[in-house]
């Protein structure tokens, strides 16, 4: 599904990613952990194609296509979804309108007709239940006046609505209370399938109590320095990141 080879990327001409390699097969859940400032979120933004994240070397192949050749919206329509660490507010645009526009943009690109109102409403209802959000909130402007937890639930809701192939969660767990964490995790677990893959970026191990990853990677200084199964996450929780830092000093 996703092959990242020797990825180097700069942010404001400063090298952040320095030769990162990662392969994700369909249906797999990968967690990326690591200390602050090692490039975890840069990886997420680079995959999504954010402006200002400049790839200087390496390749990213997604579903057999060169991802770096694609604009951010093309990547999204091809099935890459990024759940934002800081979801953006869009005043005056209702969540319902935002979602409809996003779904119809995909359909338009595929040459399909716009989604039927009844079909949309059914999907919406189902996915709102998944993240335990009241239907009323669809009429509010996207993320405006939402609490931190509501914003993150909204990200998972959107993810469910858009049916992506690759879901990237950028520190979705940060700032969540235990209830929101449970809801978000249950949403993700409900979406796991043989075809869909996840890349979960987190600073803390606690999210992985709820979402069982197939692989855990430790990122340090712009690279993946250690990979393992979920026991690696436990080890990080017990021992912290210092032993990683020392080993890679």
């Amino acid at each position: 599904m996703l092959e990242i080879k020797n990825l180097h990327a700069n942010v404001v001409s400063k090298p952040i990613l320095k030769g990162l390699n990662l392969n994700i097969a369909p249906g797999e859940v990968h967690a990326i952990m690591g200390p602050n400032g090692t490039g975890k979120s840069t990886l997420a933004s680079t995959l999504a194609g954010r402006n200002g994240y400049e790839v200087t070397k390496g390749d990213i192949v997604f579903e057999g296509e060169d991802l770096l050749d694609m604009e951010p919206d093309e990547r999204a329509r091809a099935g890459v979804f990024l759940a934002f660490q800081y979801p953006v507010e869009i005043p005056g645009v209702t969540t319902i309108n935002f979602m409809k526009s996003a779904i119809n943009a995909r359909r338009k690109a595929e040459g399909e007709a716009a989604i039927k109102a009844s079909e949309f409403m059914a999907e919406m209802k189902k996915n709102l239940e998944l993240v335990e959000i009241n239907q009323e909130f669809m009429k509010r402007s996207v993320n405006v006046g939402f609490s931190g937890g509501e914003k993150k639930r909204n990200e998972i809701f959107q993810m469910a609505m858009l049916n992506p192939k690759l879901c990237i969660l950028d520190e979705t767990d940060s700032g969540l209370d235990i209830d929101a964490l449970r809801v978000v995790s249950e949403g993700v677990n409900a979406m796991r399938s043989k075809e869909r893959s996840f890349l979960i970026i987190t600073h803390y191990q606690r999210l992985l109590d709820y979402i069982q990853p197939d692989f855990v990677h430790v990122m340090y200084n712009g690279k993946i320095v250690k990979s393992g199964d979920k026991s690696l996450a436990k080890k990080l929780e017990d021992k912290g990141y210092d032993w990683i830092k020392e080993a890679n000093a």
Binding site: A48, G49, R50, N51, E71, P72, D73, A76, R77, F81, L82, F84, P87, V88, I90, F98, S101, A102, A105, R106, A109, Q158, L162
Partner: peptide, 13 residues
């Protein structure tokens, strides 16, 4: 830029 990127990331041109 952040608003534009958020919309782009949801598939909007």
């Amino acid at each position: 830029e952040d608003m534009m990127f958020y919309c782009n990331q949801r598939g909007l041109s």
